[in-house]
């Protein structure tokens, strides 16, 4: 009858829907846009007294200056070393333990697994004081091992991989066993190659998590050369004379790895988060 007006009404709701989304997206993105755009503005563009929303130039001077005048590259290198080491460690310890919990019937397996799961209820802040005292006693303050070793095994990683391993087709493993393959061979040639999606998820998750850590590196480092980028960046801000464009250039450099990972690994990250959440 009046299909035309229904169509028009639908079009109107669609437009309103898009406008609303666009407005909300601008608000959500603004803080990141602010950091990125100020990074590439000239000092004159910034010092106009009012926020500048549209940069006119693509000025690289801030990036160059922040690299030359602050140890930001050293911070990045530290974070990179720490996050990579933790990621590799978590993948190794996590996949080994997950394999045992999924496929090897050893005595006390249920009990140990339950004990592991119980630690999910202990937030790291609860154990941070003794860990700090331990590092102090070992002389591991301001060292890579102090920042890396405590995080080499996580229950989240073990749990995530175990859940994935359990869903692998049992026939494959049975067939390999019939051929006389031992656990080590099944683990290396069947389970690990088939688990690439889960391993990828854990890798992305663990790298980002370590890269973004705050409290532990704050406690463990007091020398500038050992600081990871998250702590380093807040120190830049503390320097009174620092210009906004330089601070934000530092922020942009610190953000880059997580932004890249977000662009390429969002799917994996989402898979990890949902696996971690739904299965609980």
């Amino acid at each position: 009858m009046n299909s035309l007006s229904v169509k028009a009404k639908n079009k109107m709701t669609l437009i309103v829907h898009y406008l609303l989304l666009l407005m909300l997206a601008i608000i959500v993105i603004y803080p990141v846009y602010f950091a990125l755009s100020y990074t590439f503005m000239t000092p004159q563009e910034i010092n106009t007294g009012a926020p500048n929303f549209l940069p006119e130039s693509f000025y690289l001077g801030n990036i160059i200056e922040v690299i030359q005048t602050t140890p930001i590259l050293r911070f990045i290198l530290n974070s990179f070393i720490i996050a990579t080491a933790v990621m590799i460690g978590e993948l190794i310890t996590g996949s080994l333990a997950a394999y045992a919990f999924a496929f090897i019937p050893f005595k006390g397996r249920n009990f140990i697994f339950a004990l592991f799961l119980a630690t999910l209820m202990v937030p790291s802040e609860v154990t941070v004081i003794p860990r700090y005292l331990m590092m102090n006693a070992l002389g591991w303050m301001n060292t890579y091992q102090g920042l890396i070793v405590p995080h080499l095994a996580t229950v989240f990683g073990i749990f995530l991989l175990r859940q994935f391993f359990m869903q692998l087709p049992k026939e494959l493993m049975d067939a390999a066993k019939m051929d006389g393959a031992g656990h080590a061979r099944i683990f290396l040639t069947i389970v690990l190659p088939l688990s690439r999606p889960a391993l990828g998820t854990l890798a992305v998750y663990s790298f980002l998590n370590t890269w973004n850590q705050y409290l532990w590196p704050l406690l463990m480092t007091n020398s500038e050369t050992m600081r990871p980028v998250q702590i380093g960046i807040t120190m830049l801000e503390n320097e009174e004379f620092m210009e906004w464009n330089l601070i934000l250039a530092g922020v942009t450099i610190a953000l880059l790895p997580s932004l890249i990972l977000l662009v390429f690994g969002l799917k994996q990250l989402v898979a990890g988060i949902t696996a971690g959440s739904v299965k609980q």
Binding site: P31, Y214, V229, Q230, T234, I247, V251, S258, L262
Partner: peptide, 14 residues
């Protein structure tokens, strides 16, 4: 989803 890439350090400074 973008804010998930933001750490507490960088977010605080911004």
């Amino acid at each position: 989803s973008l804010p998930i890439a933001m750490s507490v350090g960088t977010s605080s400074v911004i």
